[in-house]
Design a protein around this nucleic acid. Structure first.
Lengths: 173, 173
DNA sequence: GATATTTGATATGGTCCATAACAATTATCA
DNA sequence: TGATAATTGTTATGGACCATATCAAATATC
């Protein structure tokens, strides 16, 4: 389905620099027909997902949190005392790829790895005080600037219906 | 929001090999609490998108078409006589990245680049006969095996509502 | 006709995802 | 108990996808 993440650079200049144009009569850029593409589930899903992630990053610019990082902080907060493998696998992150991610969060003093006394192989993950504070601010930004945008766009009822249907697709498709 | 594409390997073995467990009483894997994550738009969107792409690839296994390749074939069919830049930009693909993609499709004799006589810089894209035939079969597979699955899951009305809302998000978020 | 722009292409780097392999630690069980 | 298997975090590595700079050929602009 394609749809890159190039984002806002839709080059809103008149685009009058098209080619096939002799008179001043036909000056349209002759937009392409999307055709059946505009009803393809995967195509629309990916476009929507890219737009949502873009907006998320803009809303979180002041905290410098990516969607993935935000999800890690949320999950660690809700599940204290879990190790890397448990957190990573719940999020669908492979353990090897989770290492660098945690290195990042830990270097920013947002979370910490603690050697478990029960099983000295594993690292228990916890949020630092700063991590808790940042997550609290992040939640507010997400709620007021990000999720609220869905209400403005779809309305409360439709927003809930959308989330419900997407969950169903994510779980049962 | 994370959610890798590791797919089906959810390791459905009893997972009884957990740690904190002395008696046979408490043998649950103690699933993590998703908490607010399960209502995060981006998280669910990405999960749903990965599932849909997975299913798309399975449905198209016999034709070896990725979602991106399918979208290119669809767009070229609906817009004959367009060049690489036009097709690529409509799909949100950057021109440099579109080259290898076309090399692939052309090597499989699904589409062809034709030097334009009007503007000898550009390559007009067309589907080959084989490309048209493959696309026709692909459409049928997508309709019967892929998109039909949404109806089975949500019902016709909800399916249309979901597509409409996702389009709105993709265009106006 | 000199300069700028466009098109397809190459080279390159970044990010994310996936697999193999390893040391340290723990579990299994003969 | 002790040999073997499994688990945890980690490193190394490769692939797929995305983005930028740059280039030659062709065209547009002035």
């Amino acid at each position: 389905m394609t749809v890159s993440k190039t984002a806002e650079k839709s080059s809103e200049k008149p685009a009058d620099t098209a080619k096939g144009r002799k008179d001043a009569a036909e000056a349209q850029p002759e937009a392409l027909q999307l055709g059946e593409l505009s009803e393809q589930l995967g195509y629309i899903l990916k476009r929507a997902q890219l737009k949502v992630f873009e907006n998320f990053l803009r809303c979180m610019a002041s905290l410098q949190l990516t969607p993935a990082q935000f999800s890690v902080l949320l999950l660690v907060e809700k599940n204290p005392g879990r190790n890397q493998t448990e957190i990573a696998s719940t999020l669908g992150i492979l353990r090897p790829n989770f290492v660098a991610m945690l290195d990042n969060l830990e270097s920013r003093d947002l979370c910490a790895r603690i050697r478990s006394t029960n099983d000295r192989r594993s690292h228990i993950l916890v949020l630092t005080d700063k991590g808790k504070a940042v997550l609290a601010r992040a939640k507010k930004l997400v709620a007021t600037k990000h999720e609220a945008r869905l209400n403005d766009l779809l309305g409360q009822a439709n927003r809930e219906a959308l989330i419900a249907m997407l969950s169903k697709v994510a779980n049962e498709f």
